[in-house]
């Protein structure tokens, strides 16, 4: 296979669960600093594609490349574990249900991995926690447990936790879908701030307005394929495919 030309390359991604094919030969390139949105109804394969990028849901066919290195390369089990752990340190991920560690404070959530994996001292880790939690506006709650935080606050801490590993890119898997409507904006603001800093991001979302406002490119997925992709002003205003139009009609009417 040829050397990768792009920051992220997904080549012919294919994934089946038994007889069900959830990803059908998807190829996608993302440049450094780009922000790509993925929209589509549930079951379209958008989360599966996102989770394949850091091998959380391994592909059954195809390749994922990040910054010149193949993520899902064929290696003996032990070597693969080492390789994938190193790759995952470079890819931050934010989940729909936050998945904060409930037995740790916000500070500990943020510092656990850097201390364990990068050998940060306690004082350096504290500095890192303050810096990252300040960035998401959660410095005042640094010693709170997740159970003492609102959904939006939890998600902001989860973003800080991912950023603390200094990842090369961030994956967002419906980061605001589990939030009460009034808490969505505070999380969106943090994501916008990351966008301004040119963090490379792939964002799976149900929020068309948000996707339109931050993404450089938007993909519409349906039944395991990318139906259409393009800049948001074209994809949302003037889609070329009937399936895209139908989806947008439902979603935008549904929102009203």
């Amino acid at each position: 296979m040829s050397e990768p030309l792009h920051f992220v390359e997904i080549r012919h991604a294919q994934k089946s669960f038994g007889a069900v094919e959830v990803l059908k030969d998807i190829s996608l390139n993302v440049e450094r600093g780009q922000i790509v949105g993925i929209i589509g109804s549930s079951g379209s394969g958008k989360s599966t594609l996102l989770r394949a990028i850091n091998d959380l849901d391994p592909l059954t066919g195809g390749e994922i490349w990040l910054d010149g290195v193949q993520v899902n390369k064929a290696l003996p089990h032990r070597q693969y574990e080492k390789h994938i752990n190193a790759m995952r340190q470079q890819v931050g991920m934010v989940f729909q249900h936050f998945n904060l560690f409930p037995h740790m404070t916000a500070r500990e959530n943020v510092t656990m991995a850097p201390k364990l994996l990068k050998g940060l001292s306690q004082s350096d880790a504290d500095k890192l926690a303050e810096e990252q939690l300040d960035k998401v506006g959660m410095l005042e709650r640094i010693d709170y447990y997740p159970s003492q935080l609102s959904g939006g606050q939890k998600q902001r801490v989860a973003i800080a936790r991912a950023l603390a590993m200094k990842p090369k890119m961030m994956l967002f898997d419906e980061a605001t879908s589990a939030l009460d409507p009034e808490l969505v904006e505070e999380v969106n603001l943090v994501m916008k701030k990351l966008a301004e800093e040119h963090m490379t991001m792939i964002i799976v979302t149900h929020e068309m307005d948000f996707a339109a406002s931050v993404c450089d490119r938007v993909l519409f997925m349906d039944k395991g394929i990318v139906v259409e992709e393009g800049p948001p002003e074209i994809l949302f205003k003037n889609p070329s495919k009937e399936r895209t139009r139908e989806f947008l009609r439902k979603h935008i009417e549904g929102a009203k």
Partner: peptide, 19 residues
């Protein structure tokens, strides 16, 4: 999701179990 979150940070399975 707890194991997943730990693994995405780069922890090995045994580190994720332990921590």
């Amino acid at each position: 999701g707890q194991m997943e979150a730990a693994r995405t940070l780069g922890l090995s399975r045994s580190q994720a179990l332990r921590k």
